[in-house]
Simulated assay, not measured.
Amino acid sequence: MAKQKIYWFCQLFGWTLLILVEYLAYLLEYGFDADTFYLALANIFLGITLTHLYRLMIKRWRWVQLPFVQLAPRVLFSVFVLAIIMTMINMPVDWRIVPDKFVEEPWPVIGYILSWGKTMLAWVLSYTVYNYLEQNRNAEIEKILLKTSIRETEAKVLRSQLNPHFVFNALNSIRALVYENPTKAQQGITQLSNLLRNSLLADRRKTVELREEVKTVEDYLALEKVRYEDRLRSEIDLDGRTLYWQVPPMMLQTLVENAIKHGVSKAVGGGFVAVQSSIDADKLRIVIRNTGTLGDKGASGGFGLANTAQRLELLYGPEARFTIEQEDEGENGEPVVCAEIIIPAQSESLFRRRSSADLLTDQH
């Protein structure tokens, strides 16, 4: 509605000012004449009507969406037609009112067309260029919104992944404990419940505090230890400065799950998983080391590695980094795989403000 008001104000003010300036010039030279005054009013109305019809036409046929090479000739032809119409109406009236003017000009028709053509060209170009730029701006905004929507949808899908095979194995392990160790079975049910809850909430939150993500990892490791017993050793060493840093939800759990599935479970004597966090050059650095052989990244990494790399790029862009490589043999001569995550510092400050709101949302 605001744009409509501005448009009509510009139409009324612009055409009135233009015609009145020309009428005042005639008034100073020839004096007042009723016919000329009425012609001036008619030209104001005619100018507004013709240019408004042009506006309706380019909107109906969507000229501003055309390439420039197709738009330019249409605009020039429209200016010519509008100038012809104004000439056909004004020239006969002027011939009767000021015949002396036509004696001095051998080609009055051309003069009229050029005069009105300049006026119409100014209006048509102003309006068309404005709408052309606005159309391009709106198109860019739509592209950005569409791209953002796609990225957000992809991120939600990636955040909500929890391996169904793990859930199946965890339930089997808990079932075996129901009669042997009811207390441990209850604890396992609570830990599995926490994991499922965090997985369901993951699609509602872009990030969580590292300490919260580590609790999910601890629950996961506790459930896996029920299954692997002494074959699985774990260690978590966190820098206190990193506890409130915002990280993607379920990201560490996915990597730890990948480490056990493709590393520890395949080792004859079992193995270890170690998680360490630190601050390095104002960036969060998370390192996950585990027993295993990397081999082909595509084959051995599974969905978890592609998931992590894609989520980091969706959230943080090129400044975030995820790498995985084979290390030299560990202390016991066992092969070790090392995965490293780098999250830029500005992301911590960006998402810190979201943390409180996310937690309140989870409580409801």
Score class of each variant (00 low, 15 high):
11 Q>V: 11
14 G>Y: 06
25 A>L: 12
31 G>D: 02
37 F>A: 14
43 N>F: 10
54 Y>M: 11
57 M>V: 09
57 M>R: 12
64 V>N: 14
67 P>A: 07
70 Q>S: 15
77 F>R: 02
79 V>D: 02
81 V>Q: 00
82 L>I: 12
82 L>E: 08
86 M>D: 00
93 V>C: 09
96 R>C: 08
104 E>Y: 07
109 V>Y: 11
112 Y>R: 03
113 I>F: 07
122 A>L: 15
126 S>K: 02
129 V>F: 10
133 L>M: 14
137 R>N: 09
142 E>N: 07
147 K>G: 03
148 T>S: 14
158 L>E: 05
159 R>G: 00
164 P>T: 05
170 A>V: 01
172 N>C: 09
175 R>W: 02
185 A>H: 02
188 G>H: 08
196 L>V: 11
198 N>Q: 10
210 L>A: 04
210 L>S: 05
212 E>C: 00
217 V>D: 05
230 D>Y: 06
244 Y>S: 09
246 Q>R: 02
247 V>M: 06
248 P>Y: 05
250 M>D: 11
250 M>P: 14
251 M>H: 02
251 M>I: 07
259 A>G: 08
264 V>Y: 03
266 K>W: 03
270 G>M: 05
272 F>C: 01
277 S>I: 10
278 S>K: 15
288 I>A: 06
292 G>F: 08
293 T>S: 12
294 L>F: 01
311 R>L: 15
318 P>V: 14
319 E>K: 15
320 A>V: 13
326 Q>C: 09
328 D>C: 03
329 E>N: 10
329 E>Q: 09
345 A>H: 14
353 R>A: 13
357 A>R: 14
358 D>S: 13
